[in-house]
Write a protein that binds this DNA or RNA. Structure first.
Lengths: 242, 242
DNA sequence: GCGCTACTGCGTACGGTGCAAGCAGTTACT
DNA sequence: AGTAACTGCTTGCACCGTACGCAGTAGCGC
């Protein structure tokens, strides 16, 4: 049994009691919240050990009393960004409504903190809020006849898709008003400048047709479309289930 | 009409002819390949302007004659990692076989260079090989009655899911032999140490049942399962198409 | 031929990063 | 009372991406 890394001990409140020395002056949640605030305001690249420390009134190295590395700080940030799931499922609602609600909830949290898509997590999440969301997602599929392995697969697929959709949308600059002067804004201009219509017929067609006017609703519409695809797939899986 | 960033000019062979001065001693493709080799061998964090420059026999700053920033270098790396799609679709094969083949092809390339999931692309891809794969994916759906907008959506959903599955698998350490000593290896140990079975009943159940023995085939099996979900969804979309 | 000019790769320098190590001061155990 | 474990702080290091100016080179217009 390996003992827990520091930040997990703190997040889960697993500190041994009766510890000597001064009480810690901050909480990791507070530190994470400060980091999140910086990321929301100035972008993820503005989050450094120094800037976060300053935001909580610390010197740089003091942060290492709460977190062993910047990567761990990022895990805390993600947990703060998720927050605890606040909604509950209507009694009587079916799995499709439930998991949709859940997916929308996750998408909403992530959309409020778009920098989450820039985080690279080299380890699976073990923080309280993220695990709470996972639990909530599994619970949405509780009434289906699927095995828990299938439920986990389905949930991971949905979560993964939602996350990826946000990622792609952020890349394309579709999450806010489209600025035609920005490099993303004239993506179409650049692409048509590059590709040979004979070598890239499908792309040429798709470009002129579909991406013609990516308006503000593009993100939401695409979200519903893709989610519908996945839910139909899950429905098919359930129907053919023994 | 904005003019192209340097690395795109080089990748697409759009340099003006009759240029003065010495010929460039390297190609971006070569530089990208060197960077890919470093990433394959020592991980993405070992890729620095210095290390790449040394690998091609340059000083650090010389790289900036080919690329305006490290981010552009990463775009080149991704393009090299993808390579050009080499396969063709069987005549007579249906869309389902075709897009499956395509998805497998992409997954294979990415799996050969797992660090691709760590790349954060802040702009949509405009490099030749990546666009060639996109074209190839759209062509797989050519025979379906879907609009090109729907085809694009479907393809993005599949690609996104494949990419995300790889990302999650890499995080979990499922892409290679499982080392129980590594932090990912005893993920289950850690999780069971943290969660209260009463507050996290679904997770507890899922953990003990499904993740019991994540063997080498877990990645591939999960890939097929999720892909099946998506393809079923697309099939449903096609059936109800006017 | 000539210089001019745009190009090559190189050397130096700068501000910023994450983090290792040792510090004096504080608190609660033995 | 003494000691051991903790707090936050200070200093210092190796490394990062990249701005800027350099001498040398190849093709242009004359």
């Amino acid at each position: 049994m390996t003992d827990l890394p520091r930040y997990l001990q703190l997040l889960w409140g697993r500190e041994p009691e009766g510890r000597r020395g001064p009480k810690p002056g901050r909480t990791i949640e507070g530190i994470g919240a400060a980091a999140v605030e910086i990321a929301d305001r100035e972008g993820l690249e503005a989050v450094s050990m120094k800037s976060v420390a300053r935001a909580v009134g610390f010197t740089t190295m003091s942060l290492y009393r709460y977190v062993d590395s910047k990567e761990e700080l990022e895990a805390v940030m993600l947990d703060v960004a998720y927050g605890a799931p606040t909604f509950t499922y209507d009694t009587g609602s079916g799995w499709r409504d439930r998991i949709s609600l859940w997916a929308r909830g996750i998408a909403q949290r992530r959309l409020a903190h778009p920098w989450t898509v820039e985080l690279i997590q080299s380890a699976p999440p073990l923080t309280p809020n993220v695990l709470a969301w996972t639990e909530h997602g599994l619970a949405a599929l509780e009434d289906t006849p699927l095995t828990s392995e299938q439920r986990l697969s389905a949930m991971l697929a949905i979560d993964g898709w939602a996350q990826n959709h946000l990622r792609q949308s952020v890349q394309m600059g579709f999450t806010g008003p489209v600025d035609p002067e920005s490099p993303q804004g004239n993506y179409l201009g650049l692409i048509s400048q590059l590709i040979d219509p004979e070598r890239f017929p499908q792309l040429t067609a798709a470009g002129s047709e579909s991406l013609g006017d990516p308006d503000d609703n593009f993100y939401a519409e695409e979200f519903d479309r893709g989610m519908g695809l996945l839910l139909d797939g899950i429905a098919a899986l359930i129907e053919r289930h023994p």
